[in-house]
Simulated scan of single mutants.
Amino acid sequence: MKQQLQQRLQELKAEYEAGKKVAAELEAKQANVRDTLLRIAGAIQVLEEELAKAENTYPLYSQTPAIEISPQEIEN
């Protein structure tokens, strides 16, 4: 009986250590994913800001409203 308990104890300790190792690996992966998401979010923000600047600074002709001028306005 004592031998069986000792064997089970060793098995549980091994499982516990293996579980700790897996948990540490998952935490490292989670930190890497979090860092990657932060970098991507930053890049998205920069691109959105640059696009907004480009739209305000350099309007496309298709976005520029047409202005009609009558001949009388040209003479005045």
Rank of each mutant, 00 (worst) to 15 (best):
E68T: 14
Y16I: 10
A24S: 02
E73P: 01
A66N: 11
T64C: 15
A54K: 07
K21I: 08
E48R: 03
E25N: 04
E50S: 07
R34Q: 14
P59C: 02
E17Y: 05
S70W: 06
I40L: 15
L5F: 05
K13D: 05
A52N: 09
L60E: 15
A23H: 04
T36M: 12
P71R: 05
R8I: 11
S70V: 02
L51E: 13
G42F: 02
L26C: 08
Q72C: 03
I67C: 03
S70C: 06
L38P: 02
E27I: 00
N56T: 01
P59D: 00
Q72E: 08
E75S: 09
P71T: 03
R39L: 07
I74V: 15
R8G: 04
E15W: 06
L9T: 12
P71K: 08
Q7R: 09
E50L: 11
K29V: 03
E75Q: 13
A52I: 03
K13T: 03
I74W: 03
L5D: 08
Q30E: 07
L12R: 06
S62T: 13
V33N: 08
Q45W: 04
K21V: 11
L37A: 12
Y16R: 12
E55D: 04
I69H: 01
Q63M: 14
I69T: 00
L26I: 07
Y61T: 15
N76Y: 10
Q45R: 11
I69W: 01
Q3R: 00
A66Q: 13
T57V: 08
L26T: 07
N32V: 10
Q3Y: 05
N76A: 14
Y58T: 11
L37P: 03
Y58H: 12
K29I: 01
P65E: 00
E68I: 13
R39C: 06
A14I: 08
T64R: 15
A23E: 04
E75L: 14
Y16H: 09
A18V: 09
L51P: 01
I67Q: 03
T57N: 11
K29H: 11
E27R: 00
L26E: 07
L9R: 10
A28E: 13
Y16A: 13
A31N: 06
A14P: 02
P71W: 08
E55H: 06
N32S: 13
R39S: 07
V33T: 13
I44D: 15
L51N: 15
T64W: 12
K20S: 02
K2Q: 11
E75R: 09
P71N: 09
A24C: 01
L60S: 15
K21A: 10
A28L: 10
A14Y: 07
A31C: 05
M1E: 12
V46A: 12
E27N: 00
I40S: 06
R34Y: 06
V22H: 04
Q3C: 02
E15K: 13
L26Q: 07
K29P: 01
I74C: 01
N56S: 01
M1D: 13
A24Q: 02
L38R: 12
I67E: 05
V22K: 11
Q7V: 04
N76C: 10
Q30H: 09
E11P: 03
